[in-house]
Design a protein around this nucleic acid. Structure first.
Lengths: 143, 143
DNA sequence: TTGAATTTACGAAACAATTCGTATATGTTT
DNA sequence: AAACATATACGAATTGTTTCGTAAATTCAA
């Protein structure tokens, strides 16, 4: 028998290299949303934003963002004392990824039943419906 | 200062009574999908199904289903020795719930941008597009 | 320059999800 | 009946996330 052992950091990096599933936790996604929306930010800023919705300690936010840096979900500039964090994953890319996964797990792979249900659940404005109709026209023309 | 303590089971039940967010884990959702698709089933059956996709031990599946019973995600008939499990949550209801949450966390609440992206990502057949167009007509008429 | 505030770093505790070994009970087969 | 297979129950190990206390470094202000 052999026993191989790896450091936590190595395992983390390996997972990323192998592109093993982009799967942020809820907290991580919350933080990514803030970084996507507001651009590169200090921990203090992100923590304040989070606290608009729910109570979170400063060091909690810090810790999570440090772990996100390890996972390469964010990058950070450590030139000055207060580090500046930036999202390291593209928002559109991340959304596509999460959407595909969600369709698979919750709608058994049927994107269309998701679309139908999303349309049915929410009140759409005339403009929004027009926008969708335009997209559908474009899709029809492609064939 | 006061300190109150509760049993795990009590906290679990309280969460359910308060309807604190339907939030199955990935494994739990996987199992619910099987129960929704195949109806009331034995652990053995569910475990076999799971093992078509990935390797899971029998007792692992059993344990998760027992916990799901505690959470009232499933009910079980214990009349005969081999218990029969049934989904205790409605599939459509669960989907709506999960979809709303997903729109909030991943698309910042915009169901329409989700619809647009879902339509863009996947190849839709003419029939499917027609179906969506019909739904849009219905929605437009409602106003 | 001394003290207060802010920040990062580190580690440990609390909690939840997953996994599995093992004990025990109940059927089944020979 | 004995041996075997199958099922549930239970508990413990493992892993990952979240939370926070505390120390050390740095900045800022009196």
């Amino acid at each position: 028998m052999f026993a191989l052992s790896f450091t936590k950091a190595f395992v983390l990096k390996t997972k990323i290299i192998l592109r093993m599933s982009f799967k942020p936790t809820d907290s991580e996604l919350e933080i990514l949303q803030i970084l996507w929306e507001s651009g590169p930010s200090k921990v203090r800023f992100v923590n304040d934003k989070l606290n608009e919705a729910r109570e979170v300690g400063y060091t909690t936010t810090l810790k999570i963002m440090q772990i996100m840096a390890e996972k390469n979900l964010v990058t950070r500039n450590t030139d000055s004392r207060t580090h500046i964090y930036s999202a390291a994953v593209d928002e559109t890319e991340a959304r596509r990824n999460l959407l595909n996964k969600f369709v698979d797990t919750t709608f058994r792979g049927s994107a269309m039943s998701l679309v139908m249900q999303a349309l049915g659940n929410h009140d759409a404005s005339t403009e929004e419906l027009d926008e969708i109709k335009n997209l559908i026209k474009k899709l029809e023309d492609k064939e």
